[in-house]
C-alpha cells in the first residue's frame, strides 16, 4: 500500500518544481525583450497622443501643464461635431443593413448546397483582402455609372451623399459580418433545430426561439466589427461622400494638413475610446458563447 502510493506520486512531485520555476535562459530573456519592445512600439504613440490631448501647449507637442480646454473647444466646433454626427449616422445605418444581409448570407452559405457554392464562398471573403483603394475606386466608378443610368431612365439627377457612403460601407462590412456569423453557425448544433421541430415548432419558431438566440453573440460580434470599421473608414468615405457631407476621419485629415493641434489629439482620443469600448464589448460577447 505504502509502496504503491509513493511510486505513484513521486514522479509528479519531481516534475512540478522544474515547471513552476520557469528558469530564465538567454533565449527567454531575448524573447521577453522583443515582446516588451513590440508592445511599446504599438502603444507608446497612442499613449503620447492621449497625453497630449490634455496639454496646454497649443501645438500639442510639448507638455506644459494639464487642461481640458481642447475638449471644450472640440464640442464648440460645429464642423467637427457635424462630421461626428454624420459618421455615427453612417456607421449605425450601414451596420444594421450589413448585419441583416450578412446574417442571411451566412445562413445560406452554411446551410444549403447549391451549384457554385464554393466560388460564392471565396467571393464573399475577397473584399476583406482587396486593397481598400481598389474597392473605393470601383465603388466610385460604379456610383457614377448608376447615376447616369438612373438619369437616363427616370430623368432624376442624383449626387454623392451620405447614402452613397452608407452603400459603400455596407459593401465592405458585409464580408466581415458573414465571417463572424458563420463561425457561430458552425458551432451551432443542428440537432437542436430537429429537437424544436420534434416538439412542434414550425420554421419561424425554430429560428426565433432556438437558432437566433444561440447565434446572437456571433451576430452582435459581427455588428460591432462592422460598426468599428465604418467609424474609422477613410478612403471609401472620402471617395463616396459628396460636397458638404464630411465624415470625421476625413475632417480630421483636413485639419491635420493645416496644423496639428491638441484639438485633433482630443477627437482622436475620443474615437479611440469608442473603438476600444466596442472591441472589448464584442470580445466579451463572443467569449460568452
Amino acid at each position: 500500500m505504502i509502496e504503491a502510493t509513493s511510486t505513484a506520486t513521486q514522479p509528479r512531485r519531481a516534475a512540478r518544481p522544474a515547471l513552476e520555476q520557469g528558469r530564465l535562459t538567454w533565449g527567454g530573456l531575448v524573447l521577453m525583450a522583443c515582446a516588451v519592445l513590440i508592445y511599446l512600439f504599438l502603444y507608446l504613440p497612442i499613449a503620447i497622443l492621449v497625453l497630449f490631448s490634455f496639454t496646454r501647449d497649443q501645438f500639442g507637442v510639448r507638455w506644459t501643464g494639464f487642461t481640458l480646454d481642447w475638449y471644450t473647444r472640440l464640442f464648440a466646433n460645429e464642423r467637427l461635431m457635424g462630421a461626428t454626427v454624420n459618421t455615427l449616422y453612417v456607421a449605425l445605418v450601414s451596420t444594421i443593413v450589413a448585419t441583416v444581409l450578412g446574417t442571411l448570407l451566412a445562413m445560406a452559405l452554411e446551410r444549403y448546397r447549391f451549384r457554385g457554392r464554393n466560388s460564392v464562398d471565396t467571393l464573399i471573403y475577397l473584399p476583406i483582402v482587396i486593397p481598400e483603394i481598389v474597392m473605393a475606386v470601383a465603388l466610385l466608378a460604379f456610383s457614377a455609372l448608376a447615376f447616369d443610368l438612373i438619369r437616363l431612365l427616370t430623368g432624376e439627377t442624383l449626387r454623392r451623399s451620405l447614402t452613397t457612403v452608407i452603400i459603400g460601407h455596407i459593401a465592405f462590412s458585409v464580408s466581415f459580418v458573414v465571417v463572424v456569423v458563420r463561425t457561430s453557425l458552425k458551432n451551432f448544433d443542428r440537432r437542436l433545430e430537429e429537437a424544436a421541430a420534434d416538439l412542434g415548432a414550425n420554421s419561424w419558431n425554430i429560428f426565433w426561439r432556438v437558432t437566433f438566440p444561440l447565434i446572437l453573440p456571433g451576430i452582435i460580434g459581427g455588428a460591432l466589427l462592422a460598426f468599428t470599421l465604418s467609424l474609422d473608414d477613410f478612403i471609401i468615405s472620402l471617395f463616396l461622400s459628396g460636397p458638404g457631407t464630411s465624415l470625421l476621419p476625413v475632417e480630421v485629415y483636413n485639419k491635420v494638413r493645416r496644423a496639428v493641434t491638441p484639438e485633433i489629439n482630443a477627437i482622436s482620443t475620443l474615437m479611440l475610446a469608442l473603438s476600444i469600448t466596442l472591441v472589448v464589448l464584442s470580445q466579451s460577447v463572443q467569449r460568452r458563447q
Binding site: D189, R191, L192, E194, A195, A196, A197, D198, L199, G200, A201, N202, V210
Partner: peptide, 15 residues
C-alpha cells in the same frame, strides 16, 4: 412538427 410523436435524442439536444 405536425406528427404525433416525440423524440429523446442520443445526446439529448437540450436547449
Amino acid at each position: 412538427h405536425r406528427r404525433p410523436v416525440n423524440t429523446v435524442f442520443q445526446s439529448y439536444a437540450l436547449f
